[in-house]
Design a protein around this nucleic acid. Sequence first.
DNA 1: CATGAATGAGAATTCATTCAT
DNA 2: TATGAATGAATTCTCATTCAT
Lengths: 198, 198, 198, 198
Amino acid sequence: MNTETETTKTLRRDAAENRERVLGAARSSFAEHGLDVGMDEIARRAGVGVGTIYRRFPSKEHLISAVAAETTDSLRTVLVDSLALKDPSEGFRAWLFGIGQLQLEHRGFLSRLMDVTDEAVRVDLDEMSRKLLRQAQASGAIRHDITYEDLMVFFWSLRGVIERTWERAPRAWRRFAELYLASLRPGAPALEQPPITL
Amino acid sequence: MNTETETTKTLRRDAAENRERVLGAARSSFAEHGLDVGMDEIARRAGVGVGTIYRRFPSKEHLISAVAAETTDSLRTVLVDSLALKDPSEGFRAWLFGIGQLQLEHRGFLSRLMDVTDEAVRVDLDEMSRKLLRQAQASGAIRHDITYEDLMVFFWSLRGVIERTWERAPRAWRRFAELYLASLRPGAPALEQPPITL
Amino acid sequence: MNTETETTKTLRRDAAENRERVLGAARSSFAEHGLDVGMDEIARRAGVGVGTIYRRFPSKEHLISAVAAETTDSLRTVLVDSLALKDPSEGFRAWLFGIGQLQLEHRGFLSRLMDVTDEAVRVDLDEMSRKLLRQAQASGAIRHDITYEDLMVFFWSLRGVIERTWERAPRAWRRFAELYLASLRPGAPALEQPPITL
Amino acid sequence: MNTETETTKTLRRDAAENRERVLGAARSSFAEHGLDVGMDEIARRAGVGVGTIYRRFPSKEHLISAVAAETTDSLRTVLVDSLALKDPSEGFRAWLFGIGQLQLEHRGFLSRLMDVTDEAVRVDLDEMSRKLLRQAQASGAIRHDITYEDLMVFFWSLRGVIERTWERAPRAWRRFAELYLASLRPGAPALEQPPITL
DNA sequence: CATGAATGAGAATTCATTCAT
DNA sequence: TATGAATGAATTCTCATTCAT
């Protein structure tokens, strides 16, 4: 903003860009080594000092949350793209597999992946998700006793699969997802277990 | 001798019992705080000094393995009990839910849970598992295109579910398992995704 | 800025100076308590946190080596100064006593003192040492059946003397060295024991 | 002594014998691994429990001293044997080399080797030592300006030599001793360094 | 008396976080 | 504002010593 500062420190990276660098470094570090990577390593990858990270993020925990929150965009993209599909059944399937692919790409902090801290955003994504389910159920593609929470649980289940298989069988989660999807089709016997609330 | 001392200091006990105390303390510590709990905390819970833990287990890694190995017995019990059921369909279901319950009880080091290091034991459990699946398929309860690996993947998926839900919805995994089980019933459409190898 | 803070907290200094402080603290700690001093004690002496030591030296072993390596310069100084003396006999004597003085000043890790890990440096010091001996022998000051290895052994022998006497008789090693030196003068009877190789 | 006890506990090792076992185990442990061996290792070698060691020796320090003190007998043997030799010059030489051999055999706690805690014993050994020196000087084999302390220092110097050479050149100390001995012969120049007291 | 399991202070090392420059 | 050196609490593991059996 300040022109003089802008002039004298032309080479200094813009704060926003700097934040991106850190987030990117954090994401790839987490993907490779898990959440236990040191802040030094992340700083090194980002090409900044540790202090710079702490200027943007009060603590490592905040950084992790920020990286997780960052996936919100991808999450939204998956939802929007899925909703855009004509066939609700196709849209539903695209959603499930889209989230799976997302997790594969963000493995390392899967435990935090589906955390969305911003309430407004959460509600937004929530509504899109529920709509996808509703449409699929209305179209007869998905059983009516399936709840939104069931799908959340499915997304969480992917973590266990991906963390264990991504190295040796990176497509294993797809078979798993397809099987699970089959159980959501109408015609299956009624469920004994009651729906859950979270 | 002195009752008060007995009370305040909980005098040295039998070595074997002590080992159990350590394993128990480790298991519950892991369940509550994950594998990152300090050895001090485990020792405190067990009511022993850290040195005592190290007398039995050369390193924290060994302790973790021991706790994990301990579950092998439970694993076998689940399998044996499931195989003992007359109805193969019932046996198969008992197996799936039994493993889920096991994981719920051992949450904290779920990442190690299905590791069985002793080769002979592994083969043994393996054979029982495959037999359960075979019988269920022969009886017509389970689709024939389901493989042993599919079930392993399912067990791993439970980790993601349980770690995320055990506190607020400890029965969530049951609904998830029931749904998954439904997808294994005959009559569902053929799977596009090929079976996996691990 | 605040003078009082300056006094009470001794604000962070230049990194290089800090490294020196650590090396100095390590050297004096080793001299007083031997290699078994804790890193905490060394850090305390240096007026830094333990972490600071580990920032410069990956492990205690590295720190010890660094302190030892530091004496390499003193070793070279002794050699250069001794070689600079006109009289080869004087030079030889200066060498022996110089090394003794060095050991007295670095007592505590005498076991590592004569270790020179850098091959090039070792060869360099080696050559100067051999030259000192050669010149002394050529000038007739030292017997011709004395080998370079004999002198190494003498230097090692000083460790035993100094470790045992430095507190109560810090000059004892000088008398010992003088006596030994006397045995190197020409005219003594031939040696029965063969020269050694190391 | 008590016949009944003797009868009922026939298999229990005699206390004195037990003490010997511990001392022997300690000595060989020290020789192999230095003073840093654990008490457990010593107990294992001795075939007793650690508690048994602590029954005989209040602390590790005491055990070390005891092992060191044990060499007093060897020390005396060397002295007696050396004094028994007709030729004082031979006796003196036998003494020096005898002590060297002793140290080679007891390497590991050389730092404590010459410690003799029992005052009466110390005086006794002291007198024999001084007598050996006196006789050698009287016979003209050794210079008159050599003191008893000079020889003590020599014995200590052997530690540095032996610790550094015993593995690769176990006879190196002999050449060193021979050289040193040469310096004690009459005819050498007067010493500048004053005699020491300890 | 002997045993060896138990103890816990202490040692080396790591890493999130702070702060002087 | 960015940097990275400094910090020190926390962690794993060791070992001399104690004490119930």
